[in-house]
Design a protein around this nucleic acid. Structure first.
Lengths: 145, 145
DNA sequence: TTGGTTGCAAATCGTTTGCATCCCG
DNA sequence: CGGGATGCAAACGATTTGCAACCAA
């Protein structure tokens, strides 16, 4: 897959998202740091790149991306913070290191069969789910002795 | 299983939790409304029962229960709120109606095999996970036409 | 040009904390 | 009696909002 800035912006455009500096910036930070980022981390990354964005704008842009289905919003365990990650085709989940926050994608989603079973049993209309698995990555396990 | 107030208090006692009015109150509300409750909902329920408890106390009591492994803390999707539920033996998850907030337990936990696979593949030490499934219950589906 | 987008500052919401008082063991 | 538990009020951190200025189409 080609990965130029133009491609990314074109991708946003295709999803009905007007190109602006903050939107491109947030989107490119999310793509570059493929994984899970908080609004704070996005802000810090932008600052390190010499860009300035307002926090409110970051939140508004993220909300827009979530609405358009480009980004998934979830929670980081043990904090009060929301975290955001780019939605992948095929719907992946995250394995998250509780120490260094590194993430590994778990795909494909192992839950579709389970959902069908549950829908049949409970007569719920299932619209989504949330799955995260927490642990410690090999590196952090070493450091932690 | 017997369910008298004394039994509930004895249960807390066994877990090293000193019996106080707020603790018994919160615990009994959680047991009565078997499912998922926010701090706010616990507070409202208490008020409806003619009891008064301070919000700080509710949070402190809930934190204590979580520490002792009696209660699980998670997030309600689409809100910024934490929600709390009694931990069942065998580790259950929730199917949550997005409209009326009714919950259905999903048990046993369908993830233990998956966790083993993932641990083997990634060399992570897995310490926990978070799974919730969202949808609309039969009643709400009718109401929503 | 012009309606959507941004930055700023202030408000909001859920949650946490310091401290004096209270109550269980 | 004494230490932990509570209530109160104030602090806190993350997120949201109103509004005026701005900018992409």
């Amino acid at each position: 897959m080609a990965c130029s800035l133009e491609d990314h912006r074109e991708y946003l455009h295709q999803h009905g998202i007007k190109s602006t500096r903050p939107r491109n910036l947030v989107w490119e930070i999310l793509l570059t740091h493929d994984g899970i980022l908080s609004a704070e981390e996005i802000y810090q990354t932008a600052v390190q790149q010499g860009e300035t964005v307002n926090f409110s704008t970051i939140y508004r842009v993220l909300e827009l991306f979530v609405e358009k289905g480009l980004v998934e919003k979830s929670f980081f365990p043990g904090t009060q913070k929301n975290v955001f990650s780019v939605c992948h085709v095929g719907h992946t989940h995250h394995l998250i290191c509780l120490r260094c926050h590194k993430t590994v994608d778990i795909s494909p989603c192992p839950l579709s069969d389970l959902e069908k079973q549950i829908a049949a049993k409970t007569d719920f209309q299932i619209v989504g789910h949330h799955l995260e698995i927490y642990g410690y990555c090999p590196e952090c396990r070493k450091i932690m002795k």
